[in-house]
Structure formats: structure tokens, C-alpha cells
């Protein structure tokens, strides 16, 4: 049956609909396959692992012997005396890094660099990108060398030179350290988004505000900030989720210490339990339970953000009325 020969209007149009449908899916397929292979399937595996007792202590080559334990891992987790501390550690870490650096500092850097000479602004922003493009190991090493105890650390060298007492900064203020180190990396993302948003505001609008009688600060408050509202909310959402799952820098810096879980965050625990436990006792099943809860928290937060910030309005059609 040739498609050039219509049998009836309806079947023809439904066939066309089907074809455009298939076309659309065809174009989405490559990205879809990537998401399925590298996200959905791993999540499903982790989900399954979290209800088994799989661990290096009882691991055999016969995977059929892997025991299904139901929700026992989750039960253990809830009764874990450190889980509560780690949970609040995570909230503390995300909240402070996000509010001080990833959003506020990023906003301040972009506002400052868009209000000065263009080239100078570009230079300052380029400097702020350095922490992001430096390999984490190198970046953390630099910080550790700066903050190290006397007589090794650069800052303590200054302290000695000035006749001040020396400190073991990582040991005494590990949270300041963790948040600053992560925050310096986090600034660049918001900075790039905010800067491009500010620079895409039409020049006429910015000039109009000055002519209307605003100072430059008032212009930021009444015109620029409202106009970059969506990028602002996007950065808050994206960076919350990104910080929730980030642990490499903390692992390299303090590895959750000093002491017992002082700066341990949820994602780092999942890693520690499943893959890097002491004495090589990797609890794959138990670690997976941590990971699953993190995915769950992330999904819930994403939905809450989308609702609270009304991202659907962002893509709503404009209601232009021509008179």
C-alpha cells in the first residue's frame, strides 16, 4: 500500500501524525539512550542493590547467593547514630555554600564586573573561573599547602613573620575551610549565568532607569534584579542539587574529618560505605541505601523548587494583544 494513495482522509492524517511522532522521538533518541544507559539503569541497579546485603565480606562469584533483605538496610540507616549528624552536616554545607558563595558572591561578582570597564570585568571573571577549571586534586593541594601547619603553610609563615601564633586551620575550623574551598569553585557557575543575563538586558532599559532618576544601586534593585529573576532561581535550584551530590573536594580536603564525621556529608557517606570503607569492608548494599535516599531528596527538592519558583510560567506563552 503506497502512502501516496490516500485511502481516506482520517487514516491519512493519523498516519501523518504517527510519522511526525516517530520523527520527534527519532531526534530525541540519542539523548534518551544516554539518559537511560547512564542514569536510569544505574539508578535501578543501585535501587536493587539497596535491598540486598551485598558486601565485600559476603561476596562470592555466585551472584545468585546475594540475599534479598528488604528494607533492612534502610532500617539500619535510620538507627545509625551518625546518620542524623551527617544529614544536618549536609544541610549546613549546602545552605551556607549556596547562600554565601554560589548565589550571593556570584551575584556580587557579576554585578561588579558588569559595572566596570568591559575588559577589566572580563579579566576578573576569568580569574574567578580558575578554581573551576583547575583539577580538584591540584586545587585542594594548593589550599592545603596554604593552610598547612607551621612551618609549612604559607599563611602560618606570615603569622610567624608577624609574630602571631600559628594555627592548624583545617583542624580548628574545618567547616570554614570546606565551605570557602567549595564556594570558590561554585562562584563561577552563577557568575557566568548572571553576567550573561545582566548583559542581555537592553541598554535602553538601563539608560531609561538612570534618566528616570535612579542611582546605579537603585537601578540594580528595581530593574536589574527583577529582570534576572529566572536565572537567579535557576542557579539556586541547580546549585542546590549540584552541592547535594558533590563530595570530591571534601574527600580530598578532610575526608569527612577531622574526628568522627565532623565534615562528612551524605554523598560522601554513600561513597565511604559502598566503596571506601575501612579495612576494605565495602558495604555495597548499605551504601546504595544512602545513595537512593539522596536521589529521592534530590527529586523531591527539584519538584518543590519547580512549584515554588513556578518555572512553568517561564515557558508560558506571552499574551500579546494587538489593538
Amino acid at each position: 500500500m503506497s502512502i501516496l494513495k490516500p485511502k481516506g482522509g482520517q487514516s491519512q492524517s493519523s498516519r501523518n501524525a504517527l510519522r511526525s511522532y516517530l520523527g520527534a522521538y527519532g531526534f530525541m533518541a540519542p539523548a534518551g539512550v544516554l539518559v537511560i544507559v547512564f542514569f536510569l539503569i544505574p539508578v535501578a541497579i543501585v535501587l536493587y542493590l539497596s535491598v540486598t546485603n551485598l558486601a565485600s565480606s559476603n561476596f562470592t562469584s555466585d551472584l545468585a547467593k546475594m540475599e534479598f533483605v528488604g528494607l533492612r538496610n534502610y532500617e539500619t540507616l535510620l538507627n545509625d547514630q551518625f546518620a542524623r549528624k551527617i544529614f544536618f552536616n549536609t544541610i549546613f554545607y549546602v545552605l551556607f555554600t549556596l547562600s554565601i558563595f554560589n548565589v550571593s558572591a556570584a551575584l556580587i561578582v557579576s554585578l561588579l564586573t558588569t559595572h566596570i570597564d568591559r575588559n577589566a570585568g572580563f579579566l576578573f571573571r576569568a580569574l574567578w573561573i580558575l578554581p573551576r577549571i583547575t583539577s580538584p586534586v591540584v586545587y585542594i593541594l594548593i589550599w592545603k599547602r596554604m593552610m598547612a601547619e607551621a612551618p609549612f603553610g604559607i599563611i602560618n609563615q606570615f603569622n610567624e613573620f608577624l609574630g602571631q601564633p600559628t594555627y592548624n586551620y583545617v583542624a580548628t575550623n574545618p567547616w570554614v575551610f570546606v565551605i570557602v574551598v567549595n564556594g570558590f569553585i561554585g562562584i563561577s557557575f552563577g557568575m557566568i549565568i548572571f553576567t550573561s543575563a545582566i548583559e542581555s538586558i537592553p541598554k535602553d532599559l538601563l539608560n531609561a532607569s538612570l534618566v528616570d532618576g535612579s542611582s546605579k544601586l537603585q537601578r540594580i534593585r528595581y530593574v536589574i534584579l527583577p529582570l534576572i529573576r529566572w536565572p537567579l532561581l535557576f542557579v539556586v535550584t541547580y546549585q542546590t542539587l549540584s552541592l547535594l551530590t558533590s563530595f570530591v573536594e571534601i574527600q580530598l580536603l578532610t575526608d569527612g574529618g577531622p574526628g568522627l564525621y565532623r565534615t562528612e556529608v551524605w554523598s560522601l557517606t554513600a561513597f565511604h560505605r559502598a566503596l571506601s570503607n575501612y579495612f576494605g569492608n565495602a558495604q555495597w548494599g548499605y551504601g546504595s541505601a544512602f545513595a537512593v535516599l539522596l536521589v529521592l531528596i534530590g527529586v523531591v527538592l527539584a519538584v518543590v523548587y519547580m512549584r515554588v519558583f513556578r518555572f512553568d510560567e517561564l515557558i508560558a506563552e506571552p499574551r500579546v494583544e494587538v489593538l
Binding site: 537592553p202 535602553d204 532599559l205 539608560n207 531609561a208 528595581y222 530593574v223 527583577p226 529582570l227
Partner: peptide
């Protein structure tokens, strides 16, 4: 202004 420059 030519573009009106109204605050959207």
C-alpha cells in the same frame, strides 16, 4: 526611546 524601554 525608540524601543520604548518600558520595564517589562
Amino acid at each position: 526611546f525608540q524601543s520604548y524601554a518600558l520595564y517589562p
